[in-house]
Nucleic acid binder design. Sequence first.
DNA 1: GGCTCATGTAAAAGCCGTTCACATGAGCTG
DNA 2: CAGCTCATGTGAACGGCTTTTACATGAGCC
Lengths: 237, 237
Amino acid sequence: MSWRKDQGRAERGYHHGNLKEALLQAALDLISKKGPAGFTFADAARMAGVSPAAPYRHFRDRDELIASIAQRGFEQFESLLTQAWDDGRPDTVSAFERVGKAYLAFAREEPAFYSAMFESGLPVDSNPTLMAASERAFAIIRAAAERLAALAPPGTPRPPAMMMALHIWSMSHGVASLFGRGDAARRKLPMSPEDLLEAEVLIYLRGLGFLTDRRPGTAAADEEPAGDRSGPWGKPK
Amino acid sequence: MSWRKDQGRAERGYHHGNLKEALLQAALDLISKKGPAGFTFADAARMAGVSPAAPYRHFRDRDELIASIAQRGFEQFESLLTQAWDDGRPDTVSAFERVGKAYLAFAREEPAFYSAMFESGLPVDSNPTLMAASERAFAIIRAAAERLAALAPPGTPRPPAMMMALHIWSMSHGVASLFGRGDAARRKLPMSPEDLLEAEVLIYLRGLGFLTDRRPGTAAADEEPAGDRSGPWGKPK
DNA sequence: GGCTCATGTAAAAGCCGTTCACATGAGCTG
DNA sequence: CAGCTCATGTGAACGGCTTTTACATGAGCC
């Protein structure tokens, strides 16, 4: 497949050459501009310069296009989370927080993907490959939670790693859904979503017995120094 | 065309009599069945037994109908949260948890309202009365957080009450969005959303220094006995 | 050159949202 | 009761969207 359609606007004839990709790109543009509901199949076709029927050669219907985008979104998401987790370096706790922030960054910087993945209303469980991609992404969070659970200080009740992972996921998702969208700017906040989530995760981790600041009386030792932060909301009075 | 609408009602003629209410009801039905995207204005009109143009006498357009539903949703939501909070009785911490559960219960039992409120994609800030209703509901959570902050044990760093309220909101919303929907059953969970959220909130509260179990070594005193629970995930090993 | 099949088009059916001119009749006024 | 008025409902129409169907094109292969 060597379409001579290299950027240089070689006028395409009857065949587009790379319509599927062009449609996915167009859909991404449109979704990020008008939301997954406002996006129309016909618009994407128009943007790609083909007739409204052409997309049906590449996607069974509109939903399948959105599912394809969600699929890609989960793949990029997984890659981003993997990178953020960085196998727990330099220390488990801070890597864990980084994962939460990566979640927010994704929601903010890739609103189209995020919408397709979480807000398009398409049933995740009806599409096995989509569900698998979703689970691969979640597996990163789960793996991080396993590591965290392994070094939780003794003497503190703690939930199974799976539950911890779900907790982190729900916090991240809650903050991202309510406050973390770049374009829509739905609700006003007296702080950044990042700070909000960071504080939330830190308090949660402290509830599990992890050292997240250095105040006397809450002493415990992480495997490595976790810095000198005392929480993003300032000192207690 | 004189099918009288409901229960043994006298023959309705040209005028419906209570179309606005009938449309809201029909829309609720349809949204809970097919989601806010699948709901159509024409369907609601059909269900109410009027022509497709009739709804425009009561709502400027489709979005305004959805906004009306969201509005009502926030009002019911506020009422439910108020009831759950019960002014902090019998003790602040358990009342606080009850609020989280009420959030979940609402998402599960009123999926149509919940969808209209949070998943319909309509801009909250464009409608002042809608935003006001939303803020009134959030004010309940905020008030609860204020009370909680007032009796947080000293010696523990803690965020402003507003931030605590946002934390609780994001946890509840995250769990509800990801796992808490009754009809759609999007994702499988090894536990109930209620248990998941309860554990999450308890760990968070412990991170703030609140007594949420009676294990030695984490002693602190709430204003009142908080029961003998050791956390919903069982004993630590 | 000629075949074949993936990939495009045009046309059409059926739906929806929305608007507009018009019809109806409920409630008021006298 | 007669008559007026206005909120409320109707029917028809426009444009746009999704999806299907029959047909056109041309790229790759013998």
